[in-house]
Each structure stands twice: as structure tokens, then as C-alpha cells.
Nucleic acid binder design. Structure first.
Lengths: 225, 225
DNA sequence: ACGGAATGGTTGGATTACCAACAGAAAGGG
DNA sequence: CCCTTTCTGTTGGTAATCCAACCATTCCGT
């Protein structure tokens, strides 16, 4: 594990946990490091899961099979990402996706019960770890909620404007940059790239917004035409 | 607070916390009960928030204003629901919605720092409360992720099939009931009710699914036409 | 500077969703 | 039981998206 410390110490889950604490913690939590060959299966969909997984090397795919066997990739997990945390913490237990190793991978497994149960020696990192966990779950929550706001809009135009005004609000400025190119923005909003481009052109033409590449400016209220 | 105990003790946040602990906990956490008149404002969008709110009476609306002042209701909160928990736990702090009292309301505010900081008297409920918090955030996470799976599909048909096959998978049975009527299902999937009905009729006609009211059955693979 | 790849904008035809309106079926109340 | 309300399915015209294809521009390594 020693060689992975510098990497893991910068991960959100272990943020703020020092080198000394780190080793003590892994012992206290009974963390286990397991390896999977390329193409190996970490979990099958529906498996009961009680451990949080942290990828320390390699690459995983979370995949979903529908009832007829069609497979689609939900996410890719690479170091130092975590997986299965929501299923474990929620108490649902049964994982809704299969987890496959796309490369030879090493995963650090942490028993959730031992995270939330204070040990006898009252380790200092317990509180830290739990706060980190809460922060991670809550942040993901906020991100998902924000995205949901945009995606539930019906038209490409509405989704785009919802997203852009949200960015403007966050920056507290009508001028702002976005972190996506057109294709990525289209994917994020679940729309067609070409339709997105077309809508952007229209909005620029009628003076609602202006943009160059990733820099945007909101000019007037699109709802008061 | 006493009169609200039976109600709050059944809320997810306080689940498993007994009557004795309950009062001790509120003291230990420095919880404060504040009242708001009908139409009053609990938070303005962008306010810095450090407390989790639990509605004990009345009714709140979380509303969102875009940059031009148009207002839309994001959620309604009624007892014993919680709000602002994601913003507070995530450390983001600035609340992305305004919180308004639609009726005269009483809200129990709990300082997050005192939840995650073990007190000197090592109260037993701290661990319980934190586990509850983790569970709530994680459950919301799982629900949001599942919904996102369906909504990111492009067409009404795909959204519907994504939802139905997910239900079939969860029930482990091709026959299952859904908890929504047509309008609610349409709202959940962010599509038109009429378009949804039409798609359902088509899928029934071509023998892909069958249904009566809220009872559904998946008959064959829609992808291998 | 050159060539190739990636990115962004445009267009036209096919598909799909939206909207409004209507009608039959089911549910609920008196 | 009847009446009203709610729920569900259907339809037709309109509007929007999707898809494929194409071109222009930018980016990047050689």
C-alpha cells in the first residue's frame, strides 16, 4: 500500500489524513487490497455489497445489463476513484451495476461498518473519514440535482438556457466560460450536438446570447420576447 | 419540541433515536426552533448556510429564480422533511435555491459542525445521527442516479423502456406494478403524457409489453426487432 | 508550412414530440 | 344509482429533434 499513499492522500475520501494516520487507519478499518486480472469481474449486478471500493491501479467499468442482455457502460472508474459507496451507505446493499476490470486492477476494499463504528482506540481519522464521506455523497447529490434541473427541461433551447443561466448565476456574472466543448455539452444535456449548435446560432442571431468558443455572455431575457 | 417527538422519531434523520436521547440530543446539538409566517423567507438563494433544516410544521417551497427573475418551484417540503442538507454537508455553503414558507411554519435548525464533531460527553446518538445522515444522502444519490439513467435517453419510447426494464429487474420478475399513474410517470420521465400513452399503446400492439392500469408485463426484447 | 484530426456550424429529410382537444372508462361522492 | 371528476387513450396539425452528411476553422505534431 505504501507506494499508493501519495496518490490516495489526495483523493477526496482520504483528504486531510496524514501519512502516520493513513497506515493506522488501514489497519483499524481492516482494509484489504485485492487484485483482478484484465477482464475480471469485481461484482455481478445484484450482488450484496458491504465494502466501499477504491481503485488504486488499473481501470474499471460499471456496466448495466437490461433484462435481455444488452450491455451499456454507465461509468469508467480510474484511480483514485471510489465506487459502490452509495449502495453501501444507503443500506440498499444490492449493487445495481456490474463492475468489470478493463485492465489488471488493484482495489482497496473498506468495510463500511468499521468506518461508522468508532473503534476502541478512538482513532482521530474516523471523524475525518466520515466527514469526507458525507462531503463526497453530498457533493454528488448537488451535482446530480443541478444536472437534473437542466435535463428535465423539454427542448434543447430550454436545456441550454437553463445550463447557461445556471453558470452565469454561479459566476455571478453574465460573462463566463464553460468547461465543455460542443459535443461534451450536448452529451451532458442529453441532446444532439447539431441541434445544440443550431439553437446556439439562433440565440446568437436574435441577440439573446453571445459566445466565442467556450466563452459565453447572456445579453437579454429570452422569455420577454 | 415535545409535541413533535412522535412525528420526528419516525423521520429518516432521527430514526432509531429514543425519547430520552432525543431531548438530550437537541440540547447537545444546540438545535433551535424558529418560526416563519406564511409568505416568509427562510433563505435567499445564495445565502451561506451552515445549518440543516427540518420542517416540523407548515410547508416550504424551494424555488429557483433565473437571471431574469422568472421563478419556478423545485420542491415542496413538508414535515418531517429535511432541506439544505446537501449544501451544508458538501461544504458548498451557498444555497442554490430560495426557501419560502407557504404556510406558517416551524423549522428545527441543526448546526452541521456539531453533528460531526463528537461532543465531550460522547453521546450515543451522534453515531446514529451520522449513520442516518449518510444513509439519507446515499439513498437520494441512488434514486437520482437511477432517474438520470432513464431521463438521459433521447426518445419517449426509450425512456419508458428504460424505466420498465429497471422495474422488472428490481422485482426480478417480468410482471410488476408501478407506483405512478400515467401523468405522474410522464412527469417523472419528463415527457408528455399523451406521447407516453401513445408509445405504450404501440408497444402493446407490437407485443413488446402488456399492461392494465399500473400492472405491467414485459413480453419480448424490443431491441431485436 | 503541411497534413490530419478534432471541433464547430449548417442543411434537408425523416422521425418524433408537443399541444390541444375530444371521448370513453374508471373512480368517487351524495 | 346517477352525476361529477379524474384518468387514460386517441388523433391531427405544428414544431422540434434527430440523423447523416458536408464544409470551414482550428489545433497539433512533424
Amino acid at each position: 500500500m505504501e507506494k499508493y499513499f501519495s496518490q490516495l492522500s489526495h483523493s477526496p475520501l482520504f483528504a486531510g489524513i496524514g501519512h502516520d494516520d493513513f497506515n493506522a487507519m488501514l489497519n483499524c478499518l481492516g482494509a484489504s487490497l485485492r487484485s483482478y486480472p484484465k477482464g475480471g469481474t469485481v461484482y455481478f449486478e445484484g450482488d450484496t455489497v458491504t465494502e466501499i471500493g477504491v481503485v488504486v491501479s488499473g481501470r474499471l467499468h460499471l456496466v448495466k445489463d437490461d433484462v435481455w442482455g444488452n450491455t451499456s457502460i454507465v461509468t469508467e472508474i480510474s484511480p483514485p476513484d471510489m465506487f459502490a459507496e452509495a449502495v453501501v451507505c444507503s443500506g440498499i446493499g444490492r449493487i445495481p451495476v456490474s463492475v468489470l476490470a478493463k485492465e489488471e486492477s488493484e482495489i482497496l476494499f473498506i468495510d463500511y461498518k468499521r468506518v461508522v463504528t468508532s473503534c476502541s482506540s478512538a482513532c482521530t481519522f474516523h471523524a475525518k473519514l466520515i466527514r469526507n464521506m458525507l462531503r463526497i455523497l453530498a457533493q454528488k447529490n448537488v451535482l446530480l440535482s443541478a444536472k437534473m434541473e437542466h435535463i428535465t427541461k423539454r427542448t434543447t433551447k430550454e436545456k441550454l438556457l437553463s445550463y447557461l443561466t445556471e453558470q452565469a448565476r454561479q459566476e455571478n456574472n453574465r460573462r463566463f466560460d464553460i468547461p465543455y466543448n460542443r459535443q461534451e455539452l450536448a452529451d451532458f444535456l442529453s441532446v444532439e450536438r447539431s441541434a445544440l449548435s443550431a439553437e446556439m446560432s439562433k440565440l446568437k442571431a436574435d441577440g439573446t446570447i453571445n459566445y466565442q468558443k467556450n466563452h459565453f455572455e447572456i445579453l437579454k431575457n429570452p422569455y420577454t420576447e
